[in-house]
Simulated assay, not measured.
Amino acid sequence: MLRSTVTLLWRLLAVLALVAGAIGVFVPVLPTVPFILVAAWAGSRGWPALERWLLDHARFGPAIRDWRHRGAVPRRAKWYATLAMTGSGLMIWWFPLPLWVQAGVCVVMACVACWLWWRPE
Results as ranks from 00 to 15, higher is better:
A22Q: 10
F95Y: 11
F26G: 06
P62L: 06
V25R: 09
T82C: 05
W47P: 00
W100I: 13
E51H: 13
Y80V: 13
L97S: 04
A58R: 12
P62Q: 09
A40L: 06
C106W: 09
C106I: 04
A49S: 13
A81V: 04
R52W: 10
R59K: 15
P31G: 02
W117Y: 09
A103G: 03
H57S: 11
P98C: 07
V33T: 11
E121S: 14
R45G: 13
R45V: 13
V73G: 02
L2A: 11
W94T: 13
R68V: 03
P96K: 14
F26R: 04
G89S: 06
L116D: 00
T7M: 09
M85N: 00
F26E: 01
V108R: 00
L50Q: 08
C111V: 14
P34A: 10
G21H: 00
P96R: 13
I36G: 01
M91A: 15
P98I: 05
L30A: 08
H57Q: 10
W115V: 09
P48R: 10
L8E: 15
R59H: 13
W115P: 08
R52N: 11
Q102G: 12
W79N: 01
V15K: 05
V6N: 06
G89Q: 01
S88A: 14
L97H: 01
F95N: 12
W67R: 07
T5F: 15
M1V: 12
L116C: 07
V101T: 11
A42V: 02
L55S: 08
G21D: 03
M85D: 00
W41H: 12
W67F: 11
A58Q: 07
L9W: 13
T32R: 01
M91K: 07
T82S: 07
R119H: 09
W79G: 01
V101I: 12
P98L: 04
L99A: 15
A49N: 08
V105I: 13
H57P: 12
V112I: 14
A39L: 03
W93F: 14
R59M: 14
L13C: 07
R75K: 09
R65H: 11
L12A: 14
L13Q: 09
R76G: 12
W41S: 05
L97N: 04
L13K: 02
V19C: 02
F26C: 02
V107W: 01
A110R: 03
H57T: 09
M109N: 04
R52V: 02
F60I: 03
G71V: 00
A72K: 08
W41E: 02
D66Y: 09
T86E: 09
I92R: 00
A40P: 04
W47R: 03
W118N: 15
C111A: 15
G89C: 03
